[in-house]
């Protein structure tokens, strides 16, 4: 590899002392090939230096910092919004849960209210604690629907949840279906995390 570039660079950038400069000029006179190579290099470096220190237009230069400040403003607004995400998620869950419950039981809200009135608080508590959600699912969905739900859960939720709260807790929640006891096993932060993961995965 014949690399004379360093010599050319030093010569053109005034980095050679007097003797080195004279020696190099003598080499150029002696060798036509080196002379041609140096001329090509000089042409290229002329183009480089002509395109090196070009000022950007005033309008564009001024727009850079304006755009940056706008982005900074948007970023700080976005930071505030996540604080409301859990509240929004909770509202969505309540709404979705209400409609799901209505669909699964094929009852109207008025009918549910009248049924609820017939039970005391302790009786209702006992029913919800012992209620097996999988029975409700099996009653109202066919095998195909259940396998679809299962696959969505596996693809979108389970891996992230296991990473976040550990396999023991997720097994408890999703395999045993004992949803009423979830709060005993996971903290409020974990609940928030689950909501945010569900929202991120666009399940909600």
């Amino acid at each position: 590899m014949n690399n004379n570039e360093e010599k050319f660079f030093s010569y053109l950038h005034g980095q050679m002392n007097y003797e080195e400069k004279k020696e190099f000029e003598l080499e150029l006179i002696k060798s036509a090939d080196l002379n041609n190579e140096f001329n090509d290099y000089k042409k290229l470096m002329n183009i480089v230096s002509e395109t090196k220190n070009i000022n950007l237009s005033k309008d564009y230069s001024e727009s850079i910092i304006t755009e940056f400040r706008n982005r900074l403003e948007i970023k700080s607004t976005k930071k505030i919004i996540p604080n409301f995400r859990y509240a929004i998620a909770s509202v969505i869950i309540i709404v979705v849960g209400y409609f799901s419950f209505s669909v699964l039981n094929k009852e109207t809200p008025d009918e549910i209210n009248s049924i609820l009135k017939e039970y005391s608080y302790d009786e209702l508590n006992s029913i919800t604690k012992n209620y097996d959600f999988s029975i409700g699912l099996e009653k109202n969905f066919n095998d195909n629907d259940i396998s679809k739900i299962d696959s969505i859960y596996k693809q979108n939720v389970s891996v992230n949840l296991i990473e976040s709260i550990g396999s023991k807790a997720t097994d408890y929640i999703f395999v045993n279906n004992n949803v009423a006891d979830v709060n005993e096993y996971i903290s409020d932060n974990d609940v928030d995390l689950i909501y945010s993961q569900l929202i991120d995965k666009q399940i909600l």
């Binding site: 183009i47 002509e50 564009y60």
Partner: peptide
Amino acid sequence: NIIDDLEKAQK
């Protein structure tokens, strides 16, 4: 309007 000098813009 990014570069004012047209000749330089071509280079």
